[in-house]
Structure formats: C-alpha cells, structure tokens
Design a binder for these strands. Structure first.
Lengths: 185, 185
DNA sequence: AGCGTAAATGAACAGTGTTCAATAAAATAA
DNA sequence: TTATTTTATTGAACACTGTTCATTTACGCT
C-alpha cells in the first residue's frame, strides 16, 4: 500500500522531488506512521526501488517468453523499453546513493540478484557449451555496457551528442562481446 | 571562488547532502548573494559540474600525453582513475537531473563536448584510415560502454556482483568494439 | 470491563531552496 | 567635493524537507 503509492509518487515526481510526507498524505497516514514502518527515508526508497526492480524482472521475463530466435536482442530491447516506460522510477534505482560503506538491505540485494540472474542465464544460453563458465563474468560486463547506453539515452547525453539509435548501438556492443567470448581459442 | 568552494563541498558531502547555504557560509557571503550570482540552485550545480568536467578533460589529456603505444587503454584507465580520485564530484555530474525538456546551459554542454571530443579523436586514431568516418558514432557508444562500467564500479553494483576488475572488463569491451569496426568490410 | 500491547498521531526541531524589499558600496556626473 | 545613479550585498520570511518522540488511539485477550 505504502510502497505502491510511493512508486506512483516516484514516477510522477522523480527521485529529486520525491517526498515521504506527500506519500503519507496521499494514503491518509500521518508522517509519523510512515517512519514507524520504514524507520528511515532511505529504507522507504529502497523498498520502492526493490519493487521497481521486481517489476523490471517480470517485464524482462515476459518479453523473453514471447521472444523468437534472437533472445539476446529481445532482452536488450526489453531492458530499454522498461526504462523508457517508467523513466523516473528506473532512474531512481541509480539516483539513490547511500554513504560509502553502508550496506544495502537484503531485500534490495535480492531483487538486484534476480535481475542479474536473468541476464546471466541468457548470456550462458548464447555461449557455446565449452564457454558457459565465463557467463557470469561476461554477463556483468554486458549488463554494464547496456546500462551505460540506457543511462545516456535517459539523461539526454546521447541526444546531445547526436546519437539516434542507442538500442541498436547497445545491441551491437553486446553481439561483439558474445562473439569474442565464443571465438576465443 | 564560489565555484571552487562549491567543488570542495561537493567532494566532501556528495550531491545528495550538498548545500548552497553551506557554500555561502564557507566563503563568507550571504545566501542572497549566491542567488543573485547564480539565479538558481540548478545553475550553481551546473557551474560546479562544468568545472569538474573541465578538470576531467585536462586529466585525460595529461594522461594521453604521457601514454605509450596503447593510447586507448590509457584513456580508459584515466577515465576510471579520475572517477576514483574524485568520486563524489564525478557522480554529481550524473546525479544532477533537470526536468525533461529543460535545456542544459551552454557552458555545461561545451564542457561535455570537449570531453567527448577527446574520446572521438582517440577512437579515430585507433581506426584504420578508411574507417575514420565512423569514429563519432563508435566513440559515443564506447563512451557509454565505459561509463556503464565506471558507474557500476562507483555505486557498488560491481562489488555486489563479484566483479573484481571493472577497468579490465571495460578495456576488453572497447577493444572488441574497435576490432569489429576495423574489420567490417 | 480491565489490562496490555501494538499502531498511529502530529507538534517540534533543524535544516533546505527561494524570494525580495532594504541597505551598503562603488562608479559616475555635476 | 557633493550629488546621483548603478551595482552588489544582505538577511528575514516563506514554504517546504526528513526526523524524533511523548502522547493518544485502537485492538486483542483475559
């Protein structure tokens, strides 16, 4: 309930203008109650972001389920599509920083691991059998690659630099990474 | 003066805890004066971030000047080194979001273009002569690739996923991109 | 009905970005 | 020099923020 309204707020206002007080008001709770439940502002944000991650994972899996031959391209396109469909909620996952050293809560780490797991599985599937053990390493790097393209597309950097097809570029980089890993000695 | 102190504040506190009031206090100005000069909080941040970008460009060029054969690897390592040396100032460049549609000020766009220009030049240099016209396109994509790796290294995602050598992974992806662009008929 | 635990409150505090009439300082004109 | 205009600087006031916590309300169980 609280987290659901929080997600609505996040998508409407974005991370910078998000207000816990406003969320409390919208669901008819007092600000104190919200703090009794979540303890701190950061944990509320983590709860919201974890739910966004979960919904992102579901979205990726749905797209993979209806994908054709090229599951990798489907995955990359789905990654971008989610970010474009819920740009502010998506950005909030990365805008939220905690003091270096502070640990992320378990439920957030779990949500992140699930999403990573989907990517690792697809990368493994795209590699020849005798290269599958490199999948986790490669998947992390390809995830970062796609993330970089998606982030530049979302924050306007690509538009500024005249890049017209961020998704196509990301797909090309991923294909090269997979090809190189498949071919290696 | 103001911007210099702003940069100090940014590196000490990070984007989320940055305070314009605190900057004013530190340099002995009143908060009103600071607003007369910059007009708005966002423009102060832009001024600070633009200076960070400029210092980043200088750093990249210094490293390239003392680089050996492999200028591309030197560039990627310098990209990461700057982010690790000034993590909070670096992150602030990307943490600062403005409402979609609002334009970035010219001086900020110029600083960003200069940094991009350095990358484009090195990518062009690394390509065979008959492929040089593809340098701008490729450079944007490789920049996004490196940025993604750097961002995941900086925000702890890579540490969480067990990636031990983010720079190495970024260099590998960039090499593959250059190789593919060089080979393409 | 009485008791005890759990849930919910909202005023209070210290902080934020932002505005703007009032003031001080500096530059220019007489 | 004095008078006048332009520029720079001020800081109280406003509407917000996250956070705390003594107090109240609600509810389940004897």
């Amino acid at each position: 309930m609280i987290v659901a309204e929080g997600r609505r707020q996040m998508e409407e206002m974005g991370f910078a203008r998000f207000s816990a007080r406003e969320v409390a008001k919208k669901i008819g709770y007092s600000i104190g109650t919200l703090y009794n439940v979540f303890g701190t502002y950061d944990r509320l944000i983590f709860a919201i972001n974890a739910r966004t991650l979960a919904s992102w994972s579901l979205y990726l899996e749905a797209r993979l389920a209806e994908a054709g031959e090229d599951r990798i391209e489907a995955l990359v396109r789905a990654y971008f599509a989610f970010a474009r469909a819920q740009p502010k909620s998506w950005a909030a996952i990365y805008d939220h920083r905690i003091p270096a050293g502070d640990a992320m809560p378990d439920f957030f780490v779990a949500a992140l691991s699930e999403l990573t797991g989907i990517v690792v599985a697809e990368v493994a599937r795209a590699l020849p059998e005798d290269r599958r053990e490199t999948a986790p390493d490669l998947a992390r790097s390809l995830l970062a690659t796609v993330h970089g393209h998606c982030a530049f597309a979302a924050n306007g950097t690509f538009a500024l630099l005249g890049e017209g097809d961020p998704v196509g570029a990301a797909v090309a980089r991923v294909r090269e990474g997979l090809a190189a890993a498949s071919a290696k000695d």
